[in-house]
Each structure stands twice: as structure tokens, then as C-alpha cells.
Design a protein around this nucleic acid. Structure first.
Length: 587
RNA sequence: CGGGGAGUGGCGCAGUGGUAGCGUUCCUGCUUUGGGUGCAGGAGGUCGGGGGUUCAAAUCCCCCCUCCCCGACCA
């Protein structure tokens, strides 16, 4: 039994000034956590109880699938991470340190390498697979910007698991088991989840999905269909290409003088203003123009490659989407010096005429999927002050390929059903990932198959943010008065408040009730403080957020106590003799 | 890393060069006991850190650190 008289707890009367988002603010105010370091938090008794409840649920769902728990050090030598290139790839996000002999160590941001090596150490036969191992471990990432308390810290707890299979079918099965286990886990935590397709990116895996809890303070933007079940991370959205158009009857391309049209808007205005250029049926819009952007890719080996991207003029290139497409290369701006090296590019008037591996610039030219055969465009004519109109895709120019890099907008058509898409924000609670053989290859994890042949093991990795889940549940379960925990994770089932003076009958009656509740299997938080006014106790109870509040107060004279539902605010007077049975029905 | 805001008792804030204050919290006493009760007395701060200017710095100057917000970044 937790007693308020002795519990290590101090609730704050006012909001802490450095906490913006509701969940963070309330976790601090209600005495669940304290900031201890940049991006690091101390769990106070109530917070630690909630944390462990969540951890227990995660563990139970892993165990239910037959996954086996192990536990690695967080402090690791650099060598395994050098073997996979991550010692450098992780960049500034990796906490690096040296031991007394000067050897390099790191605080692990994730443990793919160690799990791979552990399995390599002990297993060598296909008969040993499939295998799934997991741990619940503190992770370290030197985040550029820790945020919103536990939502993004530099030290946090993650459940990470890793599957090991002989073949792709096995990987798929392990992946699906995790998918199901994750759905059940988040369901038990009371977290609404949208599963979105994510980019497999540089990892080269075939599938990756994120489990997002929708919330406005979320950091990830994703799109979801307003009609069907399609949902995808913004980076992974696939644009549905329109139907192609026959070339017959399309006007011939024509170069026109368009002085002083540095922007899409000025170009469109000019076309609408000039009688010789006006469209008879409707006004020109930015969507009629083809915008060509040139960037520089910094390849992993340090070399640079130029890349041109063509998108409809009513959209910008989304750098995040572009980066996801070209990963592991990084995007750098195309500078004046770069233009000097490519005299065929007329800045501000770049067009398909100069772009493409087979054309003057030799720059690879990729276009948005909406640019299909037969679409006609106003675009740069590769000469200052000139544009070309009615340049027809497939007839007048052919790019080197397609790229998904244009901005995604609300109301874009769903690639699955064509209904409008909408953008939303969420926080990543879990990520499941078909890694494939990258780590097994780099670290030499192989097994012998039934024919005695060496096979590289194929892997998956799967994460749940455990400490983040505390923050997410708090964020989604509160009101102006405080937290409202879902019962499965709440620090107690019932918060018993005794009002009255020390000599009044309420206190001993509440004491007795608390003991009975506990004997009946209820987890009890008992406000047994004397000399504290009822208002303070009521406010604290609402702030702390235990789902059921029982007040042993003035009704005691009539043999009843008040049972209040924290979430709905519903109150009922229940006869003292019936309280325990009544409370048990609410579990 | 870029832009913006801010660091003063546990928490929230005031204090533009001259002995650090208010509210709350905490302690003591009395009072009060169904919505943060009232009164009185008390405790608690090297004013984020380091340099500098000055007779004198929370206050002015320089450097650094940290926190919050936006962006970049983020299996």
C-alpha cells in the first residue's frame, strides 16, 4: 500500500515553466519524474511504478510469442560498430568515450551488432533457427534536441528485439509475429496506433513499418486516407500516377521569350497576361509548369554527384522525402561554383533540354510520378529569359527515371483508392524492420543448411520505446485537473482519500477499507495525511490520476463512501460494506 | 547546427549599477476540515558558470553551459 503520508512525493501547485507539452508538464507537476540531466530524467516512486507496469506488459507480450529475453551492457567497445560502419555513420548522435588505456567505447544507441555477434558466438546450424531474442535496455543517443521530457531523451529505455532466420519466408514470419505482438501490446497500453509504411532506406530491407500514436505534439508527419486504411510515413508515400495521354493533337513545343520571370508565380502571371500565351479554356496555374531543381549528392565515399529533380510547379521538393530516396547519400545545395562547372545550365531557366545523362549537362534527371507520357509543360528553355511551352513528356523529353520527392499535400489522392489523403502527426512508438543480411554479412553470421552449405542469416529488428510510452500515455490521458491513467498502467487501482480531523472516525474507517481493498487484490494509494485540508487532497488525487477515487468523508455517518471515476467524473455513494465488491467489478 | 525566447530559494515570478525580494512550498504554534482555510513566527538563494569594466555588478561587456519553441537532424 502506498501511503501519501510517507510517499516520496511532492506535487507542485504551479506548472513547471520549462515543460510545454501537457504530458511532460503533468508528469513533473504530479511528482512522477524530475529532470536530472540534459535529456535525462529521474523516475520518482509513482513514475517508476507506471514505468514498470508498461515494461511488464511489453515483456509479457514478447514472452507470449516465445521470444527470449537477454540483457547486454550499454557500455560497449567500438570494434563491432566499426565492422558495420556505424561507429562513423552514427555521427554526432553516438556517445563515445575512452577507457583508462585509451581504448574507444560507446554507449549503445541500439544493439544490432551485439545480438548478431552473440548468435554467431553460440549458433551455427539451420536447426537452431528461427530465433528471436530481445532485451529491455537503456539506450543512449546524443540527440541534437531532446524534447518534451520523456518523449525524446538522450537516455531512454527501449525494448529491442532481433529475429534470425535462414530464409526470407522465415523473416517474413518473424516480422508478422512482431507485428501482431506490437498491436496487442499497444492495445493493452491503451495507446491508439496507426501503422504506417516507412522507408527501408539505406538498410536495403524489403519492409518497414512504424507504429505511430497520433497526437499533435508528435514529431512524425504521416498521411492517411480519409476512406480506406492506407497510411504511410510522409517519406514513404507513393504517388498514384495519372493516366497517360495520347500525343495526337497536342500542340508542338514552342520556345517563348519570358523576361523577368524568376519565380513560378511571375511566370504564370506573365502567361495569363499575354494574349499570345493565354490558354483559351482556363487560366494557367503553377501546376502547368515543370520546376527543375538541381542538387548535389554527397555519396558515402565522399564523392559528389549532381542530380536534377522535376516536379509540378505547384509543389516544392520535400527535402526529407528526397533524402530518404537517395539515402545513404546526403543532399547539399547546388552552389554558384557548381553552376560554373555546368555551363549548359541556365540558372532560373533550367529545362529538360539540358538535363539527363544523355544531354548537355550529363546530370541525371528524375521526375515526379505525376509527369507521365502526354502531359505538357511550361518549363525552362535552358537559356536566360526563355521558357518553352507545350513541352510534352515522352514526345519532347524523356527523363532518366522517376523519383518520389515532391511535397505531399492534404487532399492528394490516395494511391490505393483515390480518395483524398490527409496529413497528421504522430509519435513513433514502435518500428518493425526487415533488415535482411546487412549485419549478418558484415559480422559473418552464417549457419549451415540441410545440405551442409553456408547460408548468411537474414535478420529483422524491432523496437518499442518503453520510457517514451509513459510519456505518450500521459500525453493522451489527461484533463485540466491532471493525469488520468488507463488502469493497466496506473500506479494504483484506487486512491482512497480520508477527510476529517485526526480524531474523526473517517481516518480509521479509511484505514480499514484500504486494508480490505488490498486484501482483495486491489492496488491502493491511501491519502492518510492528517492536518491536510480536503481541498488539497481532492486536488492531489485528481492530479495524480489514479482511475478510481474513493472519498471516506461526511457520508460515513450514513454508512456510505463516495466512489468517483477519475475519467468521467461520475460519482456514486456506495455502502461501506459493498465498496470492495463494487471496486472489484471495475478492474 | 540555424532562427527566436529564457536562466534569480524546491516551484512560479519581480528586481536596469549601491546591503537580494514577493507568492507558493517547507518548519513551529494556534485556527480550520467537502474543493489548494486563516493568522503569527521561522528556514531556505555563491542571482547558470568563467573572465572583464567599476569604489561597487543579479543588473554593463566578452566567452561558455543549460532550458523552451520553430527548423535542420533523428533504425
Amino acid at each position: 500500500m502506498l501511503r501519501m503520508s510517507t510517499l516520496f512525493l511532492r506535487t507542485l501547485r504551479e506548472d513547471p515553466a520549462d515543460a510545454e507539452v501537457a504530458g511532460h508538464r503533468l508528469l513533473v507537476r504530479a511528482g512522477y519524474i524530475r529532470r536530472a540531466a540534459p535529456g535525462g530524467f529521474t523516475w520518482l516512486p509513482l513514475g517508476w511504478i507506471v514505468y514498470r507496469n508498461i515494461e511488464r506488459i511489453v515483456r509479457e507480450e514478447m514472452d507470449r510469442e516465445g521470444f527470449q529475453e537477454v540483457h547486454f551492457p550499454a557500455l560497449l567497445p567500438k570494434e563491432p560498430y566499426e565492422a558495420t560502419g556505424r561507429w562513423t555513420d552514427y555521427g554526432d548522435n553516438l556517445f563515445r568515450l575512452k577507457d583508462r588505456k585509451g581504448a574507444d567505447f560507446l554507449l549503445a544507441p541500439t544493439h544490432e551488432e551485439m545480438f548478431t555477434l552473440l548468435v554467431k558466438d553460440l549458433y551455427s546450424s539451420y536447426k537452431d533457427l528461427p530465433l528471436v531474442l530481445y532485451q529491455i535496455q537503456t539506450k543512449y543517443r546524443d540527440e541534437a534536441r531532446p524534447r518534451a521530457g520523456l518523449l525524446r531523451g538522450r537516455e531512454f529505455v527501449m525494448k529491442d528485439s532481433y529475429s534470425f532466420d535462414v530464409d526470407d519466408e522465415g523473416l517474413e514470419a518473424s516480422y508478422q509475429k512482431h507485428r501482431v505482438a506490437y498491436q496487442r501490446t499497444f492495445d493493452r497500453l491503451g495507446l491508439p496506433i496507426v501503422i504506417v509504411s516507412a522507408m527501408s532506406g539505406a538498410m536495403g530491407g524489403s519492409a518497414s513499418e512504424e507504429f505511430l500514436a497520433p497526437m499533435v505534439v508528435g514529431e512524425d508527419t504521416y498521411v492517411r486516407c480519409t476512406t480506406c486504411d492506407y497510411a504511410a510515413n510522409t517519406e514513404a508515400v507513393q504517388v498514384a500516377p495519372p493516366a497517360t495521354i495520347a500525343f495526337e493533337g497536342l500542340p508542338a513545343a514552342e520556345v517563348v521569350d519570358t523576361p523577368d520571370t524568376p519565380t513560378i508565380q511571375t511566370l504564370v502571371d506573365l502567361f495569363n497576361a499575354r494574349a499570345d500565351l493565354r490558354r483559351p479554356d482556363r487560366d494557367w496555374t503553377a501546376a502547368d509548369t515543370l520546376k527543375n531543381l538541381v542538387v548535389k549528392l554527397k555519396n558515402p565515399d565522399g564523392t559528389f554527384t549532381a542530380l536534377a529533380i522535376g516536379v509540378p510547379g505547384d509543389r516544392d521538393v520535400d527535402m526529407k522525402r528526397l533524402e530518404a530516396q537517395v539515402s545513404p547519400a546526403e543532399i547539399e545545395p547546388f552552389t554558384e561554383a557548381d553552376f560554373a562547372l555546368h555551363p549548359s545550365l541556365a540558372k532560373g531557366y533550367i529545362g529538360p533540354g539540358a538535363l539527363g545523362l544523355e544531354h548537355a549537362s550529363g546530370i541525371r534527371f528524375l521526375v515526379d510520378p505525376r509527369i507521365v507520357d502526354g502531359t505538357r509543360w511550361i518549363t525552362g528553355a535552358d537559356s536566360p529569359g526563355k521558357h518553352v511551352k507545350d513541352l510534352v513528356m515522352g514526345r519532347d523529353f524523356t527523363p532518366d527515371g522517376i523519383i518520389e520527392a515532391a511535397e505531399v499535400h492534404d487532399d492528394d489522392p490516395c494511391p490505393k483508392c483515390g480518395s483524398p489523403l490527409e496529413m497528421a502527426r504522430g509519435i513513433e512508438m514502435g518500428h518493425i524492420f526487415q533488415l535482411g543480411r546487412k549485419y549478418a554479412e558484415a559480422l559473418g553470421l552464417t549457419v549451415l543448411d540441410e545440405h551442409g552449405k553456408t547460408r548468411v542469416v537474414t535478420m529483422g529488428s524491432y523496437g518499442i520505446g518503453v520510457s517514451r510510452a509513459v510519456a505518450a500515455v500521459a500525453e493522451l490521458n489527461n484533463d485540466t485537473k491532471g493525469l488520468i491513467w488507463p488502469r493497466a498502467v496506473a500506479p494504483a487501482d484506487v486512491h482512497i482519500v480520508a477527510t476529517g480531523k485526526a480524531t474523526d472516525p473517517q481516518l480509521p474507517a479509511a484505514e480499514l477499507l484500504a486494508a480490505e481493498c488490498e486484501a482483495a487484490g486491489l492496488r491502493v494509494l491511501f491519502d492518510d495525511r492528517v492536518g491536510v485540508s480536503p481541498g488539497v487532497k481532492f486536488n492531489d488525487a485528481e492530479l495524480v490520476g489514479v482511475p478510481t477515487i474513493v472519498v471516506v468523508g461526511r457520508g460515513l455517518a450514513d454508512g456510505v463512501v463516495e466512489v468517483k471515476d477519475r475519467r468521467t467524473g461520475d460519482k456514486a455513494d456506495i455502502a461501506l460494506a459493498d465498496v470492495v465488491a463494487h471496486l472489484r467489478t471495475q478492474l
